[in-house]
């Protein structure tokens, strides 16, 4: 059924190395997204009309544009249309951070605006100053809401990185295709085994993270 090709040579190692490329792109992008997303989220919560309009447009673009289209825009747009030599992996990180920042910013904004006014009022009436109110009351509540959602974003990033093969990055799917090609004669059925293994590899990478995010969400639910 094609599993045998994975035992040949260092094929399995190559596949895992391909997966590592996907994981690296997603982790870098998530890290950038969290930092930029928190900043943008706070700015959005200030309700400045100009920031509101710009961020609305930005969020709507991210909401309706497939990541695949964004990848094409950034990668082919810069390399072919503008003649800038952008590495495919850099293009991928830019696109995923662009997307992730929007999602994080929306979460941060929502979390900030959802803290009931009474939380501020009761902290102040207890004698806490503004800094203490944020330090001990507001920020901990926001973090509790944010963490499960950010973890969830990681799994979505990992899944979406499968798209980067379409702009020529050699990640797990591409390696899989190469292995299938190379063994076309010896194992004509390799596509079944290789793609099933890749399917399971993605599952093994994402499932524990999803479970963790769900567990934290349940545990911190008010």
């Amino acid at each position: 059924m094609g599993f045998e090709v994975l035992l040949k040579g260092n094929n399995m190692v190559r596949l895992l190395a391909g997966l590592a490329v996907s994981l690296r792109i997603s982790l870098v992008s998530v890290a950038i997204s969290i930092v930029l997303g928190v900043i943008l989220g706070i700015l959005m919560a200030l309700k400045n009309p100009i920031i509101t309009v710009i961020s609305r447009v930005y969020l709507e673009i991210v909401r309706i544009m497939p990541q695949m289209v964004l990848l094409f825009l950034v990668y082919f747009g810069t390399t072919k249309a503008m003649g800038i030599n952008l590495e495919a992996e850099t293009a991928a990180v830019i696109v995923f951070s662009f997307w992730g920042t929007a999602e994080m910013a929306d979460l941060v904004r929502g979390a900030l605006l959802n803290i009931p006014a009474i939380q501020y009022e009761s902290s102040i009436s207890l004698g806490l100053n503004k800094l203490q109110t944020y330090r001990y009351v507001i920020v901990p509540q926001i973090i509790r809401r944010m963490i499960p959602l950010s973890i969830n974003l990681i799994t979505r990033m990992i899944k979406t990185t499968s798209l980067v093969m379409m702009i020529g990055i050699v990640e797990v799917l591409k390696v899989g295709q190469q292995i299938i090609e190379a063994n076309r004669k010896a194992s004509p059925g390799a596509a079944f085994g290789v793609f099933l293994i890749i399917f399971l590899l993605y599952f093994i990478a994402c499932w524990p993270i999803s479970m963790l995010s769900r567990y934290l969400e349940k545990r911190w639910e008010n």
């Binding site: 499968s162 299938i180 596509a191 599952f203």
Partner: peptide, 23 residues
């Protein structure tokens, strides 16, 4: 639900389109 929510569509399609014909 767990299997399909935790894997990318691209991989699912590759498996269905290229993998399943082999069996």
């Amino acid at each position: 639900i767990e299997l399909f929510r935790n894997t990318p569509l691209l991989v699912q399609l590759f498996f269905i389109y290229f993998g399943l014909p082999k069996v």
